[in-house]
Design a protein around this nucleic acid. Structure first.
Lengths: 350, 350
DNA sequence: CTGAAAGCGCTTACAG
DNA sequence: CTGAAAGCGCTTACAG
């Protein structure tokens, strides 16, 4: 049975082993400049021999920025977020940064707690966040004021001057709704929730624009939250003037809608066509292969990390009006739920 | 424009504001014992007034265990892992622990790097890991030797005495294959990859047992990795003695198989039945609703964190032969791909 | 119940 | 090119 704790070698141990002063070891560890080749070699070999690793806590206490970013995600169980998070984390690790993950459920107060935890520990050099509360602005501004850059992902916080990575929401929605219009639909209802996020409202704008351009009347169905979607859709279906097509604002809504239509025995797309914003891995394998707007989820994560690390390097907090803004393209993946028969793939999708 | 960095108040600032010594502030911060009510109040109000937060780095340097666990996941883009990770992180945060996330792709060396990062930073008080390399044993033993408990999730590392959370793999597979046998299938092929993991080999055992009990000949189809699955299945389908049913060992395999069968225009379940280990959120909405063994993914994550935190509290590293072992039940969700017509739900599923 | 002081492991002016 | 020493913000014996 091994001992409970084995003490780590310190710089002093290495110094002793190499026959130099601690400060010289530190020099080798960092730049390595102004050190004679001979000493450098002796120190390095001692480091290896003793299995020395610098103590992060001491470094941070001394004022070094921890090579750690905070990643705040509403719900890691949602594939859109988890794909982003995975890509973001990968990119960070590649650059030598660790990722402190904070998943904070829809539950209203958890984002605050997550932010507070990050703040109080002083643990992150930068923050990557899918904001799920628009009123987190103050907490984030505090972080920025302490020199911690912030990048918002997929959504933006009003009044917060931060780095941003968005997706072409309006354009994607426009393409989707135009496609439905092209199929001859006139009563197209737009359904979703979370319209307080600008990602969602941008999609709504795209929908409205497409409808207006075609001289059609927009009809919004906005639920309180994902769980309420079936209820309001069902009510709408039972009212007169039944829609012939649905445009769904995100993946949760799409799933709910599909389940509902299946329960109600409504044939898609014959009785009602469906196009969603957000694609599924299994889109192709669904009872009715889903036509959907695909977002570059992984690229969103990667771009976010890249932008954040750049801001860290530049010493920019994102609050000096320079806030870089990245907008990623979306793509309409045409399958069957829109009414198309042979699935004609758009662009070079495999 | 706010200043770049605002300095944080320290214990000394609080002490001054409260008119006491630093040590007293520290006492209030920790236990709070042996402090007069009056002083306690003065100190607390000063803390609030100044917005004081203890400096984690200093605490850690002083020898306190960081309230942080490391979570090592092969691929966060896989819903099984992301659901676990989410639940694990939630549970950790609830207990005041932060989660350092390390997602390390199938890419062979990343798990090593992830572990090295954790080790070198001394950043985690405990490690939760879905091992993706069986040879990480040494690194993990090192961590244990330094007093950091380890809990393995979903799989086990040979020769490592750690906390473990597993799932009833053999039992689940047995139920699944028995169900196919009940449908009259005789040529049931078991397909998958990653058979070096005991989770997978336990599923294979369950399959073999079911086949043996029915006097049937087991037939294994084990690919190098997920991407190779379609190739070997296709080859098998084109050989003589075509299987009438497939038992798939995990979700990636199931997806691949389903795509392949669709491309080949093989009707499920008429021409070939399919049952998978691992359920999908969208299982119900698939062209052929999938019959699958459901694993309690979220519970796996939660149990893992719970066990790990307990080990941390007990000062157990898991290497003293005490290593707690939790095994979670699985459930067969019967839908249509097995050949059942009206979907008779097993047990109390909604 | 309260405090003065040492020390955790680093880095960094400051000298030489 | 190299080193002695201070100090980052805490906690902890040790006194009183």
């Amino acid at each position: 049975m091994p001992r409970k704790k084995e003490k780590d070698p310190t710089i002093a141990d290495v110094a002793r082993a190499a026959g130099v002063a601690g400060m010289t070891v530190s020099r080798v560890l960092n730049g390595g400049k102004y050190v004679s080749a001979d000493v450098d070699k002796r120190v390095r070999s001692a480091i290896v021999r003793l299995g020395y690793h610098p103590n992060e806590a001491a470094r941070v206490l001394r004022g070094q920025a921890p090579r750690t970013i905070g990643l705040i995600v509403p719900n890691l169980a949602d594939p859109f977020f988890s794909v982003c998070a995975h890509a973001a984390q990968q990119m960070a690790m590649q650059q030598g940064y660790a990722t402190l993950l904070l998943a904070c459920e829809a539950d209203l107060n958890e984002e605050d707690r997550a932010l507070a935890l990050l703040r109080s520990r002083n643990a992150a050099t930068g923050v990557l966040i899918f904001p799920s509360r628009l009123d987190s602005a103050q907490q984030l501004k505090d972080m920025q004021a302490r020199g911690v850059p912030v990048v918002t992902l997929d959504r933006t916080i009003p009044g917060l001057d931060a780095g941003e990575v968005m997706v072409e929401n309006a354009e994607g929605a426009l393409k989707a709704v135009n496609h439905l219009i092209m199929h001859g639909h006139k009563r197209i209802v737009c359904v979703g929730y979370d319209s307080q996020f600008n990602s969602i409202s941008q999609r709504m704008d795209g929908y409205r624009r497409a409808m207006a351009d075609a001289g059609l009347k927009p009809q919004m169905l906005i639920a309180e939250n994902g769980a309420e979607v079936p209820k309001i859709v069902l009510k709408r279906l039972r009212a007169g003037d039944v829609p012939t097509a649905l445009f769904s604002l995100n993946n949760v809504t799409t799933t709910q809608v599909l389940h509902l239509l299946q329960r109600e025995n409504l044939r898609v797309p014959d009785q009602i066509a469906v196009v969603g914003f957000d694609d599924f891995d299994l889109g192709e394998l669904l009872a009715v292969p889903l036509t959907a707007v695909r977002q570059p989820a992984a690229e969103l994560g990667r771009s976010g990390t890249r932008l954040l690390l750049e801001m860290i390097r530049m010493g920019s907090t994102g609050m000096e009006g320079t806030g870089a803004r990245i907008v990623l393209p979306t793509e309409l993946i045409v399958r069957r739920s829109c009414g198309c028969v042979a699935p004609p793939r758009i662009a070079g999708t495999k």
